[in-house]
Design a protein around this nucleic acid. Sequence first.
DNA 1: TATTGTTATACTCTATAACTATA
DNA 2: TATAGTTATAGAGTATAACAATA
Lengths: 158, 158
Amino acid sequence: MRPDEGLDHPFAGDLNWLLHRVGAVLGSAQDEVARRHGLGIRGYVVLRTIAQSEGSSQLALGRDLGLDKTTLTAVLDRLEEAGLILRRPAPGDRRARVCEATAEGREVAGKAAEEIEATEQRLLAEMRPRDRDELVRLLRQLAFGPFADTAPISGSCI
Amino acid sequence: MRPDEGLDHPFAGDLNWLLHRVGAVLGSAQDEVARRHGLGIRGYVVLRTIAQSEGSSQLALGRDLGLDKTTLTAVLDRLEEAGLILRRPAPGDRRARVCEATAEGREVAGKAAEEIEATEQRLLAEMRPRDRDELVRLLRQLAFGPFADTAPISGSCI
DNA sequence: TATTGTTATACTCTATAACTATA
DNA sequence: TATAGTTATAGAGTATAACAATA
């Protein structure tokens, strides 16, 4: 890419547009992979989080991922129906339920993760690894800094 | 923010999740501003592009912004109904129509743009300007590099 | 009285395809 | 036969509020 590529585009300097445009291309490619594993990208994110965490409640899960509880209920319903997760009453608070991945759920999450990472590598093949890491570092700085305490946003594509 | 903030989060290293999370927080704040001007964030993006360009056809507009034609038709219908744009037959190709902003459309686009930029500055107050510029540069490298020729994606939040 | 989670409703958005008009 | 744009329809996703159970 030429260093000035895209500079004539009306939103070439607009952070929000760039985030959504790059996220849309990467996200739709990864969503396609997730669908081949019987999940959407959102189902994948939720399942993988559950598989990697130790029995967190639904509200805690929603806070971590920026999803509100009604959206999360629908996603968990599908994952549970597919036998990928279980919901158990939380020990110590009978209002809450904690989610656990089943053995099959962990297997699906792991296989999907491998393919989804490969998809990212393929799409980012032209970018220097150092730039990719820097991009992640800068985004993390926002996501876990000033943006960390934002209320859940459902229409967030994930 | 501590340098290791968020590193225990299951998706702290996932580029796609970070893009969507940061985009959701920034995007929903800017969408709220756009709504106060009678637009959504997508209507704002389309209107501003039209206001800054010289009579481009609808398909060209869609290609620039990554929107497909059916989505764009609906957005343009609302902008035209609100008196912010006009659609004229394209000179030289009577199938096509070119879009132009009205005086009111340019005024609304300009005022909304000011407030939307201020919103970004407020949310990014903690980030060094150099880092913000680097973030935009890296995203642009993808958006106008390997991602440039991706087909329109409607479910892209913008 | 507040919190966890579910359900119901209406609303918006999207995808697909069919369609008109023109090239 | 291909392209620019519109319309129709069905499906998915979302937001809001109300609700049950528990704290």
